[in-house]
Amino acid sequence: MTDRQGERIAPHEIGRMGEKMARLQLMKEGRRILYKNFRGPKGGEVDIVARDGEVLTFVEVKTRRRREGSRPLDAVTPAKQELIERGARAWLYMLKETDFLWRFDVVEVTLEEGKKPEVNVVKDFF
């Protein structure tokens, strides 16, 4: 993947681009972004914490270049899910009131050179 000047984009920059696209898509769908890149004090991480109406959502973003046979969602392994769950527990621990609905979502961002990025929101993934 290259930028407009033909320079190769570093993998961490591709990830940042994907997270920005994910936030924009979530806001377009009416979500309110509360926090990005949350890290729990004892480990755990959540890319985006957002409100979807009355539901608190913990969102993982996976950005990949177009490859046959694989999709970004495939990278949300059980080990990755545990890391996200640990981050979500840390977020919930900070709240005084937790009598509300919450869920885990994933946003897939697929990039292909010369094409418009594909952004897919998967609600209640795990």
Rank of each mutant, 00 (worst) to 15 (best):
E19A: 04
R8S: 12
K36G: 14
I48M: 01
P78L: 10
F104Y: 15
T63S: 10
F100A: 03
K116Q: 15
I9N: 06
V55E: 14
V119R: 01
E68S: 11
G40T: 10
V76C: 02
R71A: 04
P78Y: 12
R65C: 08
V109G: 02
D3S: 04
G18Q: 05
T98M: 10
G40V: 10
E82I: 08
N120E: 13
W102G: 00
V59G: 01
P117F: 07
Q25L: 04
W91H: 02
V61F: 08
W102K: 00
I48Y: 06
A75K: 10
L95H: 09
F100R: 05
R103Q: 14
K28V: 05
P72N: 12
E85P: 00
G43Y: 10
L101G: 06
Q5K: 11
I33Y: 00
E97G: 03
P78E: 07
E112G: 01
E7P: 00
V121Y: 11
E60S: 13
P117E: 05
T57I: 12
V122D: 00
E85V: 09
Q5F: 12
M17Q: 12
E112V: 04
R65D: 08
R64W: 03
M1N: 12
R51G: 02
M21Q: 10
Q25E: 15
P72K: 09
G53Y: 05
G53C: 07
G44T: 11
L83C: 08
A22M: 09
N120I: 12
L34P: 10
R86M: 10
R8L: 14
D99V: 03
R16D: 11
L83Q: 15
V76G: 03
A79L: 09
E85K: 13
W102F: 15
E118Y: 01
V55K: 15
K123F: 13
G18Y: 07
T57S: 13
E13L: 13
F58D: 07
E108R: 03
D124R: 14
R23C: 15
V106E: 01
R86V: 01
Q81F: 11
R64P: 02
L56N: 01
D124T: 07
K115D: 03
K62E: 13
R4K: 13
G30I: 12
E113T: 13
K80F: 12
W91Y: 14
G6N: 09
F58M: 08
V109C: 06
E7S: 10
R8Q: 15
E54S: 15
P78S: 06
Q5M: 09
L56V: 13
V55R: 15
Y35Q: 01
K36M: 04
K62Q: 14
G18A: 06
D47N: 14
G18W: 05
V59I: 14
D99M: 07
D99C: 07
R103N: 08
V61W: 03
